[in-house]
Amino acid sequence: MREVWLGEPASIDELRSALAEALDGGPTVLPLDARDPSAEKLRAAMAPDQPVEPGTAVIIATSGSTGEPKGVLLSVKALTSSATATHDRLGGPGRWLLATPAHYIGGLQVLVRSLLAGTPCAVVPPGPFRPDVFAEAAETALRGEGPRYTAMVPTQLTRLIEAGGAGLDAARAFDAIVIGAAATPPKLREQAAEAGVRIVPAYGMSETASGCVYDGVPLDGVRAEVGEDERIRLSGPVLAHGYRLRPGLTSEVFTGGWFRTGDRGRFRDGKLEVIGRVDDVINTGGVKVSAAAVERVLAGCEGVRESCVVGLPDAEWGHIVAAAVVPDAASATAPAADRLRAAVREAAGPAAVPKRLEFVASLPLRGPGKIDRASVVSGIFGHAIDTKPEDGVHSGA
């Protein structure tokens, strides 16, 4: 197993070189973030001194929302099938800009795609995302012939649109920007279209070697189905072949050529629509409320940039609905709590109305753009975390 510690710009070149060797049958690659305080714990959990499961080219290590280390095992076939299908969907191999951390699957796949395309990969320097730095890094990717692509999370796109200027101009110049790691709100889709930015929302995770459903349509070779319980299942050559040293969990979620996700979905007009997590249902006073449904209502309200809805333990109700809301800095009208509650009441019913509503400057994140719900519960609302087992490591553009 070859460990690659990321944090300095030069480490991306090291990772790209290691990936090239792994795709050619070389040592398994384990990318780690040198700036992450939990990285050593993750490394130890991956047991680098023990033999690697056969056929593993890359291990994506994560602590997930529960804090329990987990390593997703990806083969050469899974990685290259995902990259090839992505190029086929977007318009052919092209030049890529890496704008998300490469130790997560969304960033790592940008490097794999550039390797298969035989093109150099431009890199946004590590650190807090800044539109001006993005614009400078994009100059390299936008030179030369052929399609130009990048991948980012919704928060990054929002900042580019709000800032305008050179960053937004650079975003407009890409033939496609794959948006993943978290749901793309309808409002952000509209803003991107109005700004002339060509985005492709993607759904996927480490277990599917990054995004495998683009704008609701599975990539070539990928199948998606929704059971009676609304749980999404995925199959195809992009699937991982298990979890590092976790045979029990592997057999639980990888069965018969299918991966059982932890997401709920439905098909609308022939497209897959993700409607929330299986475990995001809040039972409040005997009424089941979907946290994702409340978040969609709040996201559609004027003056709201993003929100996170969680259930908090309550002696009377069992759980209450609580919402952390980030106001939209670009909006001329600040959201009013009463107006937001009224919108939820009208769209989702009285039980869904947040009994606690907090306005915050930002939401805590884990990974590239994914809201850390456990930190919302403990940090914003000051409650002990009631952890639940996590089915998958959800991330990926």
Score class of each variant (00 low, 15 high):
E3Y: 06
E3N: 10
L6A: 04
G7L: 07
P9W: 10
S11C: 10
S11V: 05
L15Q: 05
S17F: 14
L19D: 06
A20L: 14
T28H: 08
D36K: 03
D36Y: 06
P37S: 08
P37F: 09
R43T: 08
D49T: 15
P54C: 11
T66N: 09
G67R: 06
V76L: 10
K77Y: 13
A78H: 03
A83G: 08
H87D: 14
L90H: 02
G91F: 03
P93I: 08
G94P: 07
W96G: 07
W96I: 09
T100E: 00
H103Y: 07
G106N: 02
V110M: 03
L116T: 14
T119D: 11
P126V: 03
P126K: 01
F129C: 00
P131D: 06
D132L: 13
A135Y: 02
A138F: 01
L142I: 09
M152S: 00
T155K: 01
T155G: 05
L157K: 02
A166P: 11
A173K: 06
D175C: 08
V178P: 00
P186V: 12
P186Q: 14
R189K: 10
R189P: 05
Q191Y: 03
A193D: 13
V197H: 02
A202S: 11
Y203E: 07
G204P: 01
S206N: 05
G221H: 02
G221Q: 04
R223H: 09
V226A: 07
G227A: 15
E228K: 14
E230H: 15
E230L: 15
I232V: 15
I232D: 06
R233Y: 04
G236N: 13
G242V: 03
R246C: 04
P247L: 11
S251Q: 14
E252P: 08
T255W: 11
G256A: 07
G257T: 10
W258M: 09
D263K: 04
R268D: 14
R268E: 14
E273C: 13
V274S: 02
V274C: 02
D280T: 04
I282L: 10
G286K: 06
S290A: 11
A293D: 09
R296V: 03
V297Y: 10
R305I: 00
G311H: 09
L312A: 11
A315Y: 13
A324R: 01
D328A: 12
A330H: 13
A332F: 14
T333Q: 08
L340Q: 04
V344N: 04
R345T: 12
G349T: 05
P350V: 05
A351W: 02
P354V: 08
R356N: 09
F359N: 05
V360P: 01
A361S: 15
S362E: 07
P364T: 00
R366W: 05
R366Q: 06
G367F: 01
G369S: 00
I371E: 00
S378A: 12
I380W: 03
G382P: 11
K388P: 07
P389T: 12
D391T: 11
H394G: 13
G396A: 05
